[in-house]
Amino acid sequence: MTTQTAPAAKDLSTPQTGRPPHTTAVSGGTAGADQPAPDRGRTSIADVVVVKVAGIAAREIPGVHDMGGGLSRTIGAVRDRVPGGRANVGRGVKVEVGERQTAVDLDLVVEYGVSVMDVARDVRENVVDAVERITGLEVVEVNIIVNDVHLPDEDDPENTTGSRVE
Rank of each mutant, 00 (worst) to 15 (best):
Q35T: 01
P20M: 08
V48R: 15
E60P: 02
R42C: 11
V26N: 01
I61E: 06
V53E: 04
G28A: 08
Q35Y: 03
I45W: 05
V51T: 10
D39F: 14
V48H: 13
A33G: 15
S44C: 15
A37V: 14
E60W: 12
P36F: 08
R59A: 09
M67L: 11
I45H: 04
G18C: 01
A57N: 07
I45K: 01
S27E: 15
P38G: 03
V26W: 01
A37R: 09
G18F: 02
G28M: 06
R42D: 09
V49M: 07
G41N: 13
P36C: 02
A46G: 14
A57L: 08
I61S: 00
A58I: 06
M67V: 00
R59M: 10
G18M: 07
A31Q: 02
G55V: 06
V53W: 06
V50S: 03
V51A: 05
G55M: 11
V64P: 02
G41V: 05
D34W: 13
T30W: 07
A33V: 15
Q35I: 00
M67C: 06
D34K: 10
R42H: 10
G18H: 02
A54Q: 04
E60I: 09
A58V: 04
V64D: 00
P38I: 00
I61C: 06
V64L: 06
A37L: 14
I56Y: 12
A58R: 02
H22M: 15
A33M: 13
V26L: 11
G28S: 09
G28C: 02
D34P: 08
P62S: 06
I45Y: 04
V49Q: 03
A54Y: 03
S44A: 13
A46M: 06
A54I: 08
T43L: 15
S44E: 14
A57Q: 04
D34F: 14
A57H: 09
R40L: 10
G32P: 01
R19T: 04
V26Q: 08
G41Q: 09
R59D: 01
G55Y: 07
G29E: 02
R42I: 15
S44I: 07
M67H: 06
P62W: 04
R40K: 15
G68W: 11
G68A: 11
H65T: 04
G32S: 05
E60H: 12
R59T: 03
G63Y: 07
S44G: 07
G28F: 07
S27T: 14
A37M: 12
I61H: 00
R42S: 13
T24Q: 10
Q35M: 02
A54K: 01
G28L: 12
A25M: 09
Q35G: 00
A37E: 10
G29F: 03
V48I: 10
T23D: 12
K52N: 12
D39R: 15
P36K: 01
A46F: 02
T43N: 04
T30F: 10
G68D: 11
G68L: 08
R19Q: 10
V51F: 00
I61Y: 02
I45A: 05
P21N: 07
R19E: 11
K52A: 09
P20E: 02
V49S: 14
I61Q: 10
D34H: 14
T23F: 14
K52L: 14
R40C: 09
P20D: 11
A54W: 03
G55A: 07
T30H: 12
P38S: 05
P21T: 05
G32C: 07
V53N: 01
G63L: 09
A33R: 14
T43C: 03
